[in-house]
């Protein structure tokens, strides 16, 4: 077993520098790498490009990096929950590239798999297609999209072991598995770091080979963005 464990988030984030490109897992505030984000805020790295489906909310998630103006460019599919984000985008302080969600996932997956580019029908005939190569397959138009090229992937899983094997929970899985191994260094934070051998190999979602560093997060707030409930009769 190759041990991927680092003792804390400081060691996990060692090597991050200004101007780097980061991938961050999560959908909305669900399954985001809360501890890594807090450390990136503390390190105050600047001019970073963030690849993440969403940009957090004003007071949480990637919104914390936005508040400190650490992000130069966001690559996302939906950014609608964040007033500071909108302000920086409209004033031109923040560069934003909006791309279809499935294309975002597949560009991560392509980077993970060593596939340099792929064709997808999403966005054909829209402004997303501008400047992109297109081609007909089976009578239908497709766009050429490229694998991402990132320095660090920060992902969050439910359980993991020292080998870097990961198990996700519920819909907090989302983009996290697709980002594992899709950057030069993948940092996994888990709610529970369990002893090697205690995870059933049949149940592992992401094998440790994709992970360089793993640590147990100090705490998880797990904020709910839209609390919707029904009444008991």
């Amino acid at each position: 077993m190759i041990n991927k464990t680092v003792s804390d988030v400081q060691l996990a984030c060692q090597g991050v520098k200004n101007g780097m490109t980061f991938m961050l897992g999560g959908f909305g505030l669900s399954g985001i790498p809360e501890n890594a984000i807090a450390e990136l805020v503390r390190l105050n790295v600047k001019d970073v490009t963030c690849i993440s489906n969403n940009a957090g909310v004003d007071e949480f998630g990637l919104g914390l990096l936005l508040q400190k103006k650490q992000i130069r460019k966001m690559i996302s599919s939906y950014v609608g929950e964040n007033a500071e984000f909108e302000r920086q985008m409209l004033s031109g302080e923040l560069e934003v590239e909006l791309i279809p969600q499935g294309t975002l996932a597949q560009r991560c997956s392509a980077a993970q798999s060593g596939i340099p580019a792929f064709y997808t029908p999403a966005g054909y005939g829209t402004e997303v297609a501008q400047g992109k190569e297109s081609r007909v397959f089976n009578g239908k138009m497709h766009l050429l999209e490229y694998a991402f090229n990132a320095d660090f992937a920060f992902i969050k899983a439910w359980k993991g072991d020292a080998a870097g094997n990961l198990i996700f929970k519920g819909s907090a899985r989302n983009f996290n598995p697709n980002m594992c191994g899709a950057a030069k260094i993948t940092v996994a934070e888990v709610e529970e770091l369990v002893p090697v051998g205690s995870l059933d190999p049949n149940q592992i979602h992401i094998p440790g080979i994709f992970i360089q560093r793993i640590f147990q997060g100090n705490r998880y707030e797990k904020r709910i963005e839209q609390l919707t409930v029904r009444k008991r009769n």
Partner: peptide, 19 residues
Amino acid sequence: PFPFEGEEDPDLINAGKQT
């Protein structure tokens, strides 16, 4: 459907980010 009050799970949302 939506969860009963008190049974919501932050790890279980839909595409609209609703529990």
